[in-house]
C-alpha cells in the first residue's frame, strides 16, 4: 500500500526533516509512527498524503507515485485514496456535522443520493447520526473526532492517515477513538498512525516504527512480539522497554482492550464502537 524508497525532505539549510527513509506498509496493516516533536513524523505523513514532495526518493501509495503528482493531481489522489484524521479534528466550524462529512464526496463529484446514503451510513455506524445537524463546536472532543473519522472515510479511501488522533482528547474519549481505529483496521482499513503516545501505538498498530531526526531507528512488529530491529544507528533510549511495558505479556491489542473505555475485555478486532463496523469501509 505504501512504499517509500530513500525518501528525503529538506527545508532550507540545516539537517533534513526526513533522511532517506525506506518503508513499506502492506494493505490492511496498521502502522504506528512514533517520535518526539521534530523527529519527522508529520513530514512523513505529509509526503504520504501528497501534501508535500520529497527532496529526493520516491513515495508510492496505492500504486500511485505521489511524489510525481502536481497540485491538482495530489488533490485528486487525496480525494480518492486518502482519509485524514487530525489531532485538532480540523472540522469546518461553520458547517454542520453532516455537511462536514459530505465535503469530500462533494469535492469528488459523488452523486448526491449516493453521498447522502454514504454519510448516513457512516454517521450511523459511528454513533453520531443524532448530531448530523449540529455544529462541531457543540460536540465533545471524542464526538468531533468521530465526525473527522466519518469525513475521512467518506470516499472509501485506501489509506487512513491519523495524525495524533487522541492528542487533544481526554482519556475516556481517547480510548473511544483508539477502539474505533482498531475496529476500522479489523475491517481491513490500512491505517498509518502518527503519534508520540507509546501506549496508543502499542495497543493499536501491528507494527511500530520510531523516527529520530528524520530517520527510522526502530521497526517493531507488535503483533508477533518484541522483534524490534534497529534500522539506524541512532535510537531513543529505553523505547523497547516502553513498548514492552505497554504490551505486557499479552498481545498489544488485548492489553489495550482490557483497559478500553467500555471496560469490557475483548479480542483483537472485536467491535466496541457503536453501530455496525462493517459499514465503515
Amino acid at each position: 500500500m505504501i512504499d517509500l524508497v530513500e525518501a528525503t525532505k529538506k527545508y532550507d539549510a540545516g539537517p533534513p526533516a526526513l533522511a532517506g527513509v525506506t518503508l513499506s506498509v502492506a494493505a490492511g496493516e496498521c502502522l504506528a509512527v512514533l517520535g518526539h516533536s521534530g523527529s519527522g513524523k508529520s513530514t512523513l505523513l505529509n509526503l504520504i498524503a501528497g501534501l508535500d514532495r520529497p527532496s529526493s526518493g520516491t513515495v508510492t501509495v496505492d500504486g500511485t507515485r505521489v511524489d510525481r503528482l502536481g497540485e491538482a493531481g495530489s488533490a485528486r489522489f487525496r480525494r480518492a485514496s486518502i482519509g485524514m484524521v487530525f489531532q485538532f479534528f480540523n472540522l469546518l466550524d461553520d458547517l454542520t456535522v453532516l455537511d462536514n462529512v459530505l465535503v469530500p464526496a462533494q469535492l469528488a463529484g459523488m452523486a448526491k443520493a449516493e453521498a447522502r446514503r454514504r454519510s448516513a451510513e457512516l454517521l450511523g455506524a459511528l454513533g453520531i447520526d443524532r448530531h448530523a445537524k449540529a455544529y462541531p463546536q457543540r460536540l465533545s472532543g471524542g464526538e468531533r473526532q468521530r465526525v473527522a473519522v466519518a469525513r475521512a472515510l467518506m470516499n472509501r479511501p485506501a489509506l487512513l492517515l491519523a495524525d495524533e488522533p487522541t492528542g487533544a482528547l481526554d482519556s475516556h474519549s481517547a480510548a473511544d477513538v483508539r477502539q474505533l481505529l482498531l475496529d476500522l483496521n479489523a475491517e481491513g482499513q490500512t491505517i498509518l498512525l502518527v503519534t508520540h503516545d507509546v501506549e496508543l501505538a502499542a495497543s493499536t498498530a501491528h507494527r511500530t516504527i520510531e523516527l529520530v531526526d528524520g530517520a527510522v531507528v526502530r521497526d517493531i512488529d507488535n503483533g508477533t512480539g518484541a522483534q524490534a530491529r534497529r534500522t539506524a544507528t541512532a535510537g531513543g533510549p529505553g523505547w523497547d522497554d516502553e513498548i514492552g511495558a505497554a504490551r505486557g505479556s499479552a498481545p498489544v491489542r488485548s492489553a489495550f482492550q482490557a483497559t478500553g473505555p467500555t471496560g469490557a475485555a475483548g479480542t483483537a478486532g472485536a467491535p466496541s464502537t457503536p453501530g455496525t463496523p462493517g459499514a465503515l469501509r
Partner: peptide, 16 residues
C-alpha cells in the same frame, strides 16, 4: 488559511 488547508487536505483542487 486554516480552513483552506482543511479543504485542500480533503481533496480540494487548486481550481476548486
Amino acid at each position: 488559511i486554516h480552513d483552506l488547508g482543511i479543504f485542500k487536505a480533503l481533496g480540494m483542487t487548486p481550481r476548486q
